[in-house]
Design a protein around this nucleic acid. Structure first.
Lengths: 131, 131
DNA sequence: ACGTCTGAGTTGGTTTATCCAATCTAGCAC
DNA sequence: GTGCTAGATTGGATAAACCAACTCAGACGT
């Protein structure tokens, strides 16, 4: 579901604080029919929720907000960003990074064990069930 | 590039140890023309590399292996898996998890600050440049 | 040498998804 | 009523995915 085109980009923009249909459309350049379809799918999947809002002198409209489940995707987006930053760098440097809201320090995504001790990526093994 | 259909699934299977054309095709059920195209794109992008190999009594063929850059994607795949495990669980439980090769302990993906101290996801803020 | 078999692609045609522009739909202002 | 606007819908063009049939190269049996 997250693998469909545009979906993770919409989530990224939502993490950046966008909430309105036109904001997503203008930021991503996505066609409005697809944006409707993707937002509905995200709402259906419990990643985003629709909220009514009202600007003065305008009728009620909907805005789109990440649910807690959607906010959890920050880890996925940050790890993708981190990978691209290292392995496909832009000359202008990264256009996004992660930081602690409370301390202001830059943070990164990594593996930790059950005691919270970081584990280097080379030491991590994916274990698969089934075939 | 990673967002194209099948691409991350191929990487996941490569992390699971698959290396041969037929293995990827049979595991994923992908059409062989698309598999050719995606493997070429991954090689082109420096995520996988082609290696000649030879089974006894067969001609030389190619196998596909993750480069170091490709192996870095384990963090992305693990964070996606972790999200799905929590937010879209299967009744049979997860079909994949991460563990430390050296200690055997289960590991998870999380944010840490520059001292290696874990930072809870709610405290993490994505910072964007530009618009 | 000759024909057969097999894994790894290629090719051609169909189906599905994306793209794009034009159109529609409320509800508010006037 | 009429006009305006953001959000959404529709229809047709383009591109991507899908599927089955085919090619190709080399090893093997005889």
């Amino acid at each position: 579901m997250l693998g469909e085109r545009w979906t993770l980009l919409i989530v990224r923009d939502a993490l950046a604080g966008l909430t309105r249909f036109a904001d997503f459309r203008d930021s991503l350049g996505i066609a409005s029919d697809l944006l409707t379809s993707r937002l509905n799918a995200l709402v259906e999947a419990g990643v985003m929720e629709r909220r009514p809002y009202r600007e003065p002198g305008a009728r009620v409209r909907h805005s789109y907000h990440l649910t807690p489940a959607g906010q959890e995707l920050v880890t996925v987006l940050a790890s993708l960003q981190q990978w691209g930053d290292v392995n496909r760098p832009h000359e202008e440097g990264p256009s996004m990074w992660s930081r602690s809201r409370s301390t202001g320090r830059t943070v990164r995504v990594t593996f930790v064990d059950d005691e919270g001790t970081p584990v280097p990526r080379e030491d991590v093994d994916l274990v698969f069930l089934g075939t």
